[in-house]
Design a protein around this nucleic acid. Sequence first.
RNA 1: GGGCGGUUAGCUCAGUGGGUAGAGCGCCGGCUUUACACGCCGGUUGUCACAGGUUCGAGUCCUGUACCGCCCACCA
Length: 898
Amino acid sequence: MRELSKGFDHATVDPKWYEFWESSGAFKAAPASSRPPFSMVLPPPNVTGVLHIGHALNQTLPDIVCRWKRMTGHDVLWLPGTDHAGIATQNVVEKQLADEGTDRHALGREAFLERVWAWSRQSHGTITSQMRTLGSSVDWSRERFTLDDDLSRAVRRVFVTLYREGLIYRGKYIVNWCIRCRTALSDLEVVHEEQAGRLYHVRYPAAGGSGADTVGGVTVATTRPETMLGDTAVAVHPDDERYRGLVGGTLRLPIIGRELPVVADGFVDAGFGTGAVKVTPAHDPNDFEMGRRHELPQVAVIGEDGRMTAEAGPYAGQDRFAAREAVVERLEAEGLLERVEDHRHAVGHCSRCHTVVEPLVSTQWFVRIKPLAEPAIAAVKDGRTRFVPENWARTYFEWMDNIHDWCISRQLWWGHRVPAWYCDRCETVVVEEGTPEACGCGGALRQDTDVLDTWFSSGLWPFSTMGWPDATADLARYYPTSVMITGLDIIFFWVARMMMLGMKFAGDVPFKVVYITSLVRDAHGRKMSKSKGNVVNPLQVMEEIGADAFRFTLAALASPGMDISLSEGRLRGYRQFVNKIWNVSRFALMNLPASMAERPPVPPTAGLGTIHRWVLHRVSELTAEVTRALEGYRFDVAADRLYHFIWHEYADWYIELVKPHLQDDAEDRDRERARAVLLAVHDRVLRLAHPFMPFVTEELWQTLPAPADAAEDGRTPDGAARTVTRAPWPRPVPAWADDEAVSVLSLLQEVITAVRTVRAELGVPPSRRLRLRIEHADPAERAVIEGHGDYLRRLAGLEAFEFVASAPADPDTIRRLVRRMRLYLPLAGVIDRAAETARLRREIDKISKQLGSLEGKLGNPKFRERADPEVVAEAEARHAEARRRRRQLDEMLAELSP
RNA sequence: GGGCGGUUAGCUCAGUGGGUAGAGCGCCGGCUUUACACGCCGGUUGUCACAGGUUCGAGUCCUGUACCGCCCACCA
């Protein structure tokens, strides 16, 4: 007999096995193998990041899939890596510099980059070791970083190709500008927040009039009065009768005095405000477009630093918000401020530093996106890529159908530098993959100082990591990847761009399935945030309860399309589940002799006792259910089935029932069979649970005797090591199907539970052995009970039971049989008459209700006509049963209160 | 303004071809039954948000309402 330690110590066990897996090559892809490929790429976390709850979920779920696929005999490639995360990383280092009293400009570009490289090299180890703690079974030998040379080459190839095809262009357009980060942002990097503001109604006098003469002027409304300094027109709707006479005329811009034409434009909503709009082409996206339609000049009054420019006249040099106040004061003083209203509106903020974004005109690089979006939309429409849950496809379409050109240049230093060079002498722009020597005209070339949006390189991740643009064997074998599992927050940032760029450059969709994971919230469904102090740190949780329990919790809570509320209760509950598995294993191990060098085959079921046939049947069903759930990405269902079977069937019933067969006094042949079945079931359970709780299952599986069949023993590809990560995934065994065993067990369970209930309700201590008399048993049921009397006596705590054959046998249901028994437990002296009477009354109420509804149903002729005959028969049976039950209860009540 | 999701036991949630409401945690009672007190046994708890409709039958399908949440958005 062997023994396991009393408890599972994840702190020592987990690292031991991860090291073993990694060093034995258990997670390595085997491109040369004949196994069918299965591939995923890991959404690369920020290289300087730390593992947060979102990562934990987005790695646990794919890890479950990968571990499962490895066991089903696939050649699994799960490719890991990290992202340089341009703006995020740069901001962190800039903050460090600020703390040191310096900044990047003082350091200079090269020294600054050296500094960021040093920081990212240093923190790279943090996130990767945390992934190991979680158990992510990635192939570390293929780890990539978005700034690696070969990935940078892919970035340049894509840029140059798109440029040459006219899909990347450079131009002066209005962009979102963060005055703190001092860079342009894409639309996605701007987060809109509804906030309280004011709507200022300002009178623009007719041109020629003095400031005081407002007759013939127009009132416009604005939420940003400081931008009026840059106005170059006023617009009204072409059909607006009120202003018809004004179109073509001019107004005078207060403060500045510039003459503004009144233009007619369909964009203007005549119903909003006064129906007249000030037009500021340099500081508002709509006005920018309107300005182009009407060939209006752009007057930039706010600079890249957020201060007013020389064009702002008296306000030059002021902060934009100070200027707002000052402009309002001046307008008021001049009597031009007609009205101020409170107004809630959405204000754009930088997603990285939360500064209010300033739209302004700037020269940037853009991707012309529509031609790329169309095939990416089609691929989801025709199912080449499928969303799970499928509703996310709507969100994807919604965005893709309304997509705008993508601003990809950033005025940062950390990232892929734009591969464009400008000639000092002529106007030539050279865009090339390599570094050009000089301009054709002989002039010196200067490289563009901007870098690319981080998501430009991430968008290439599924193929750039596999060696593209070379036609590598990896690309041929592993692209498109099988599935992508990622969070809903990056559907647009990342998933959409991988779709577009993958189809354009790798010639196919990047993945066949996109599983969108939910947001993890706190126990009460609130978003986790530092300020609320409700952030769950996965590393701390794993330290406390181990990675297995943590992972299992995430899987169990991952209902598709629903946010996850992570509660301590669930975490604790599943930690206890891990402990349960540990102890079931202890029990199994104690009862399997060490000499059992090779695993005995399961004996033919025909020769086995009912409990063995039952458990084999159930484990086969479990196998089918877990497999089906995984195939449908129902991690929650799979976890739930495992939990229920292992705890409430295998441990609570089978282990208890099998104990006598394993004892020393059991007959040898009987004991050997019991051992063989126990081992077979236990082995299967550990394999099925392995993807969810890799560490504890490996630890336990390694203690089991090796199977006789070499193909079953889970060697690593090089044949070096046995590991459950490579053990074959169990398959349902049709020959184990056994409805008879199921019905026997359910009868036994009902009888045993009924006796226990009676004992508990009447306060009979377990030590007191009871005699049970059973009346009116159906002959078949009587035979079953007699045939399994030992189990009944043992688990119900009976001294003996007997059948009373006084009444004729009838086809009563199990329930009735059981209820009848309570009357004959010789306990008359113990019964609390009042309590028992109340209980019976409650039950009578319940049954009366049921009876009522059944009579309604059966009394309805349409039910008899249309319902399935089987259903009608069942309803009739239930009705008959309910009536009998009702009569019994009445009798019992009468007996109690004579 | 548009899109999506939610409303089921005290809490957090399952309930995916319509057919007698489930789990975990919590709560109550009883147990040293030698795998496990991170345990065992038993018990309690629901006008399935509301209003209509389809159906013999609706938590489940349809329509509408209310409230909550998320995402997108160029009405000043």
